[in-house]
Amino acid sequence: MTKPKVGIFGLTGCAGCQLEILNLEEQVLNLLALIDVSYWRMAQELPADPTNLDIAFIEGSITNEEEIHEVKEIRENANLVITIGSCAGSGGVQGMRNIMDNDKVKAAAYKDLSGVRSVPVKGVDEVIKVDYKIRGCPINRDDFVSIVTSLLLGRQPHVWNSPVCNECSMQNNDCFFERTTETPIYRSNICLGPITEAGCGARCPSNGMPCDGCRGLTSDPHISQLVTEARKRGETTEKILMLAKRYSAGSSAVKKSFEEMR
């Protein structure tokens, strides 16, 4: 059997999802026995061949014209395109400028804006067809291995179709959504577990912090119930939406889900 030819690409982001792949440690070598990585700029100089790929993994969001061009080229050269992480999947945190006053955001970062060329932040599937999204900010390396294994075996990758709450209750965590005590200074009084897709093992609630929705909306999210509850706690709709779209303001599908709620 010839090994599938794989490329790993980075657009604009923190490079954490690529790093999470490197963080597989010894397992990287096991993986390399099964796939042929022909393009991965972060880890290797050569070979650097981004053509005729069986699988292209894309990390990072689209923030300028060059990246629009680049993802189109990747699509033409790859049989399967898989996004890794929230930036490639739905824009990531930098996408928040789409729902803020864009000029003010840019002016806060630069005194002189003449050299800045940027477009509204986009997840990759706003520009090209994406075959599968690996969720999370960052992705979970076990998730990555499980999905790559499925693909190598010709199976459909696993889809959870359930909210983080399900995993959280299995861990016997105290519920951050059913607030019973005063909210401490270090965290939000809203937990996004009820509307967020599972698969992380309820990572944040298990570490003493509420879910902030990095894996994106679950299927059939009960958004209006969450918003009603948050309003009761004194939050404005605007602030709730800013929190709920922290990682996904570069996704038109997410925008649509929230519009339907309104």
């Binding site: 657009l11 604009t12 923190c14 954490g16 969001s61 689209i62 923030t63 300028n64 990246e67 990531g92 945190v93 930098q94 928040m96 400028r97 803020m100 003010k104 955001v105 840019k106 002016a107 806060a108 970062a109 630069y110 800045v116 940027s118 900010c137 200074i185 270090y186 965290r187 939000s188 902030d212 929190l243 922290r246």
Partner: peptide, 24 residues
């Protein structure tokens, strides 16, 4: 790489939100 404007993105955010966003 594309610019991400973090100083702008954290403006208006509550004190407890900033470290979570800025670590990105």
């Amino acid at each position: 790489e594309g610019a991400r404007f973090f100083e702008g993105i954290v403006s208006g955010k509550k004190h407890h939100e900033v470290p979570i966003i800025i670590s990105r």
